[in-house]
Design a protein around this nucleic acid. Structure first.
Lengths: 343, 343
DNA sequence: TTGAAAGCGCTAACAT
DNA sequence: ATGTTAGCGCTTTCAA
């Protein structure tokens, strides 16, 4: 249990200076040394079981090879794939990720941002729910590389990666319309979350394109992206507008809640009402009747954000696109019924 | 975008020595300074927006205030709650966690263990699937604090936190037996995963207690904890032993797969066959008919492991129990039918 | 009560 | 091609 060997130990062992050892162990500068001494040093390093001390490295180079990943809550199933996407590009480059859960709490978020900065992270990937967040913007303004995921950033020159929410809503609206649905209600997400707002706006926009007037639209807004809110809003929609044939939900959990409510109250999906989701979370295949939804490539989103961040860290800020929009796709299961058009 | 202020900057600003600044900012040693100068220093620190450099701190104190968390795969839904449990005790103490995914790959695991050590983690929480893992054991032997989750460790003096698998299997077996089931098959997990083996052994042990001879037991072993394997093994069980009235599965995903197979092949659960799971993963409520399973408190498991690790880091090794067994509970839904006993 | 100086392990500019 | 030296930002003896 003796302490880890350092360059100094290897230097003593091989009778050279520590800087020589440092050079011998650095693939970049190895070339400027005698083959013979390099071999000797590497052997000694192996023999002693030398492992570089990244902390000392970080202090010296002012580079921690660490990035911060801020997410609302890792237990929300959409985030693990994002995290793995980030890891898939960061880890091979030698970066470690410190993942923090903000719980959407802005106070907590501020503290965590500070913590990450104290730890000298080289950059931050900020997977946002809240549409505005001063702390991270401030950090970015101070020169810390930041990339935002899932949120358009107006405040600063922060590059962001988003999914094509608008296209997704359009796809699924088209899909419903193609199946004869004309009375399509929207079970919207919270307006203060970016996805909630974006999808709602997209819904209105698409509906307008189909010639529906804005005030004729049935929209019910959930307070949170949770099943319980899905149930509540489904009830509201059904009572306010009984002729509704389809509910286009802002995400899968709301849709699942809506389905559950409808099933328990004489409107089984899809026979009596069609319901759609957004996200395509895992295990949807196992939940009857099978939710038709919009698939988002979470892993890719994470990987893309990571690649952008690395570019920024490497100082290629100029080449980093301000906006990256990732394609989404329609995932058809069995929650949409083809119905007769009225006329 | 000027660089972050350091102790030296505050020293210059206030006209004192950096060591004085260091003391003034350390709650522990503040007492040995003049009230007046402490105030002056703290004000200057605030004004400059001073944030301590944890990397320099780490190098000096040989303590990174960072722990490594090794898990197989964060996208496996049982792990996020564990991670949050760990975070819930670590973060308030000032520790950050570096989470790494091993994918059950022993080579990857070796590399990641080294990476964590290079980064000077103060300890590691190792959430294992594989029953044996030389790398982490070696690290522990070298004096690195290590706590293992979900796995009994024979190899070394590593403290471990496990769930009471045996009690869980017994509960659910009792439950099935109480409901009249006598022909209970076991859909076992992979034998090389700790939970797979433990639950299988528990099943055999309980069956023996009920007077069933070992060679009469119907056991089918899955190669992986996945739905597809659940389907395959369910088919196998049904064809080998058509009189089976209940399948006790080693985890929820296997149970879900088994349910799916049975439903599609004329044995709907629970009417024709009763099926049980293990873990109580999220969303089980939404999947009909509702899987009866054993609930594991993943969050608590993570928190418990974290508390043990902190104790070890603090040098209280003596007081750390070698074994911690967490209670589990029965979660009844609707996948078990009461049937008539034969006699 | 405060200052001076050393050093954690490493890299890099400069010197030889 | 290798050695010398300084220093990243901090804590901590030892002196005063």
């Amino acid at each position: 249990m003796s302490r880890r060997p350092t360059l100094k130990d290897i230097a003593r062992e091989t009778g050279v200076h520590v800087s020589t050892v440092s050079r011998a162990l650095d693939p970049q500068k190895r070339s400027s040394l005698t083959e013979e001494i390099v071999v000797k040093i590497r052997q000694a390093a192996d023999r002693l079981g030398y492992r570089p001390n990244r902390i000392a490295f970080s202090l010296r180079k002012q580079k921690s090879m660490t990035v911060g990943v801020m997410i609302p809550d890792i237990t929300n199933m959409i985030f693990p794939p994002i995290v793995r996407g980030i890891e898939s590009v960061m880890e091979p480059l030698g970066y470690a990720s410190i993942i923090v859960n903000t719980d959407g709490d802005s106070d907590r978020e501020r503290r965590l941002t500070e913590t990450l900065q104290e730890r000298g992270v080289d950059g931050i990937i900020h997977t946002a729910v809240l549409r505005s967040d001063p702390n991270i913007v401030e950090a970015a303004r101070q020169g810390l590389p930041v990339v935002t995921l899932n949120r358009k950033v107006e405040e600063a020159e922060i590059p962001y990666v988003i999914n094509d929410e608008e296209a997704g809503i359009r796809m699924i609206f088209d899909h419903l319309h193609d199946h004869g649905h004309r009375r399509i209600a929207h079970l919207a997400g919270p307006r203060d979350l970016s996805t909630g707002l974006l999808r709602r706006e997209a819904f209105c926009s698409v509906a307008r394109d189909y010639g529906l007037s804005a005030d004729a639209l049935v929209i019910e807004e959930a307070c949170r992206f949770e099943e319980e809110e899905g149930r509540r809003c489904a009830k509201e929609i059904l009572s306010r507008s009984p002729e509704t044939t389809a509910i286009l939900c802002a995400n899968d959990r709301l849709a699942l809640g809506a389905m559950d409510y409808c099933a328990r109250n004489g409107h089984p999906c899809p026979d009596k009402i069609s319901i759609t989701g957004f996200n395509d979370m895992p295990f949807l295949d196992l939940i009857p009747p099978g939710l038709t939804t919009v698939r988002i490539e979470q892993f890719d989103a994470g990987a893309t954000a990571a690649r952008l961040l690395v570019q920024m860290i490497d100082g290629c800020d100029g080449k980093v696109p301000r906006e990256t929009v990732l394609p989404v796709s329609l995932k058809c299961r069995n929650s949409v019924l083809r119905i007769e058009t009225d006329h």
